[in-house]
Design a protein around this nucleic acid. Structure first.
Lengths: 146, 146
DNA sequence: GCATAATGGTTATGCGCATAATCTTATGCG
DNA sequence: CGCATAAGATTATGCGCATAACCATTATGC
């Protein structure tokens, strides 16, 4: 492959990551949230209470990160962490009412973020875009291939 | 816009960011580099010595981040930081020989990373992809609009 | 020509991510 | 059973990013 193309591609992905995350942080700040925490709330709102291991899998980040993030969301009052009666190792994490309310607000913010992001892209591109991004994610995911 | 589409899009971007960065980190680790440092070396290799403010602009991250990253790359011996004689506030950053050699290796790694990333994507998509990513980046970049 | 603003850097602090090591509980197998 | 192994979670540490506050230098405008 052409090294210039490779460089342009990797750089573009890196820049998009930085900027998209930065913009998300701007939008989430008024809610008292930091970028990354919204994924926890949205996931819990989608599928209900989860074990931290399941949450880790869903978020695509490692267990230690989940421990710290959930702890902070707990002290903020948006999440409840209770020991799993069926498995004494596990702790199940669930949304509080405040967390549910926040999830709704996040979803609204995310519509505006998505609209900003795709501005001026043709409709045909928009139809393919989620699939393209998903393909690239799984392509580069070490856990599935290796 | 459809909230589900927005959610899927934002989530896909977040996941791609995490995974692409994680894979980059895996590839860079044997070189003794951490994800993010490669951008410094590649940029300096592209355009030559830079003031930190210019580097900050080019990398898309804030000056304090540049201070810390360049310091670490300096102690690793891949970069030289010298005071700018023309402007006593500025410090100019340049690659050492070791840094140049590393930049070459990074470019090779980035070809394999890019090839992995775009596996199974149709050629038509590949032609548009850099433009799409760039459009989204600038769309979501606060500094241009706000 | 001097006060004021703007620019370049750094320090301090905090968050999200990572890996490595450790502890506890579950589970599989002889 | 009992014991080795796996799985869930945490602690410690380190990096890349951010913002806020601060200092030193340069540029600006009356």
């Amino acid at each position: 492959m052409d090294p210039e193309y490779a460089d342009a591609l990797n750089q573009a992905i890196r820049l998009l990551s930085l900027r998209h995350r930065a913009r998300a942080a701007q939008l989430l700040a008024p809610l008292g949230l930091h970028a990354g925490q919204e994924a926890v709330l949205l996931e819990l709102d989608r599928v209900g209470p989860l074990i931290q291991a399941q949450l880790s899998e869903a978020l695509g980040c490692e267990p230690p990160s989940v421990t710290l993030m959930t702890r902070k969301l707990e002290v903020s009052g948006h999440i409840r962490r209770t020991p799993d009666p069926a498995d004494k190792r596990a702790t199940v994490v669930a949304l509080t009412d405040s967390g549910k309310a926040l999830a709704d607000q996040i979803r609204e913010l995310w519509v505006t973020l998505a609209e900003e992001t795709i501005r001026d892209l043709p409709a045909a591109t928009l139809r393919q875009l989620p699939g393209i991004l998903h393909t690239m994610s799984t392509n580069v995911d070490g856990k599935s291939s290796a």
